[in-house]
């Protein structure tokens, strides 16, 4: 089963995604696709907190800050928690080398390939499209690219849900029991 979750920040997407991927994995391999590249102490503290929160859940952490299908495909097929699409696109698009306009296409293809490979997968993205912000060209290209990836993943997934204050608004399919 393929599940896509989005919504505002701190609404419970990651917690739900963790629970769903654990349920889907059963006794099979369960991978956490780690997308964050820590840039400072605040990021390192966040990574440490996330690691603590996943302790005892049986996740194998796989570092995949870029083109995630490549790192994952070397392992036995299993269930993937991919958190988050937002971070992956930021890594692909903005680096010390500059801004890469081809990043959204590359990230999209890699994620679709990963979805094909996985036995089950839960994607987590962020909904950042309903404000009145006037963004610069590249921030807007990032938002447009992320939305395009989200829409492609939603078309490929069995279930699409918006998470709001920990509650679920189903847009497509059903959640596993």
């Amino acid at each position: 089963m393929k599940i896509f979750l989005s919504g505002g920040a701190k609404n419970g997407k990651s917690t739900l995604a963790q629970r769903l991927s654990k349920t889907l994995a059963g006794s099979g391999p369960l991978y956490y696709a780690a997308t964050m590249i820590p840039h400072d102490e605040e990021d390192e503290a966040r990574v440490a907190r996330h690691l603590r929160e996943r302790e005892g859940w049986g996740f194998e952490t796989v570092e995949c800050p870029l083109e995630p299908h490549a790192a994952m495909e070397k392992r036995p097929r299993g269930t993937v928690l991919f958190d988050s699409v937002t971070a992956l696109l930021a890594n692909e698009m903005f680096s010390a080398r500059g801004i890469d306009p081809d990043a959204p296409q590359r990230a999209k293809q890699s994620l679709l390939r990963l979805a094909d490979w996985a036995e089950h997968i839960v994607f987590v993205s962020d909904f950042l499209y309903s404000d009145a912000g006037q963004y610069d060209e590249w921030t807007n290209a990032y938002r447009r690219g992320l939305a395009e990836i989200d829409r492609a993943l939603c078309a490929a997934c069995d279930t699409v849900a918006e998470v709001c204050a920990g509650a679920v608004i189903l847009h497509k399919g059903v959640l596993p029991e």
Partner: peptide, 22 residues
């Protein structure tokens, strides 16, 4: 129509008025 209603209250007066009027 785009939903522009979420996010922080905009700093700029015109954007604030625009968001409310929309």
């Amino acid at each position: 129509c785009d939903d522009i209603s979420c996010g922080v209250v905009p700093m700029e007066a015109e954007t604030r008025a625009w968001r409310e009027a929309t």
